[in-house]
Design a protein around this nucleic acid. Sequence first.
DNA 1: TGGGACCATATGGGCGTCAATGGGAAGCGG
DNA 2: CCGCTTCCCATTGACGCCCATATGGTCCCA
Lengths: 147, 147
Amino acid sequence: MNRFLSNVTSKIDAKGRVSVPSVFRSVLIQRNIQELYCFQDFVFPAISAGGPDLLDRFERQIAAEDPFSPEANEMSLLIHGGGVFIKLDSEGRMMVTDFIRDFTGIVSEVTFVGRADHFQLWHPPAFAEVQAAAREGRRLRGTRPTV
Amino acid sequence: MNRFLSNVTSKIDAKGRVSVPSVFRSVLIQRNIQELYCFQDFVFPAISAGGPDLLDRFERQIAAEDPFSPEANEMSLLIHGGGVFIKLDSEGRMMVTDFIRDFTGIVSEVTFVGRADHFQLWHPPAFAEVQAAAREGRRLRGTRPTV
DNA sequence: TGGGACCATATGGGCGTCAATGGGAAGCGG
DNA sequence: CCGCTTCCCATTGACGCCCATATGGTCCCA
């Protein structure tokens, strides 16, 4: 599989590290992603992680605007000020820094959530709650996938 | 990485100094920036800091206009009158002067914010507030990254 | 079909290096 | 002559890199 799918919850160890699930790591290898671009998500209290191409895409979006405009500055504040490159160690683990903890509420466990071209890091109860709300909203609207 | 990314908050010591985060210092070395050009940001209540090339770019922009135009005068007032060169000490720390404090509201802590080709110094609560507002604005406008 | 060997992932921790921080002392300017 | 700044050194703690062990699942063979 070449997309990030499903979700996995794993524990943070005593040194503040967490193993990135192997299903996600194998996708990273397939896509030849050496270093993760992680940013504070625009919509959810989660960290989104993907390849450097994600950042490139955002920057192209900024470049299309007037660099002095408030909108371009706000966008940069989010993707540059709210983003960081993170490397995995030789065992495929990443450090859970305060940058991640403060924004997500993550304390001792991380839920990794696949989002096709990227994946996210969630505080487990927050994910359960938001996912349930999303399911409920969809049910109320009576939406069905158009096949 | 060759860009300024992410944000880090650190304390000002008893002598009024603050350590520039090592992630930013390594970018400064890569770009061969010896001395920081710091100016009062045009958009946010923050000090922007980058290499001398930043100032050069601004000056070229002025030179392209009629030197007696109100725009050129305003611009010079901002980048010359509102700018200063600052050196780091041998440990990579900088003095937090009143020039910085008065404009930003910084008191005892500084949030360093990466902005790709430069970085900024913020009063921590101000940054949290403005970044959250930027995120909210984006969410309301319904903007999504163009895939 | 059950047992066992093997492999891959997950997890825990040791250790060296480097960044962050605090403070002494000399240099410079007012 | 005094205060601020800059240079230098020491200490502490965090992080990166590495290896050792645990765990669970699969495959093969008896």
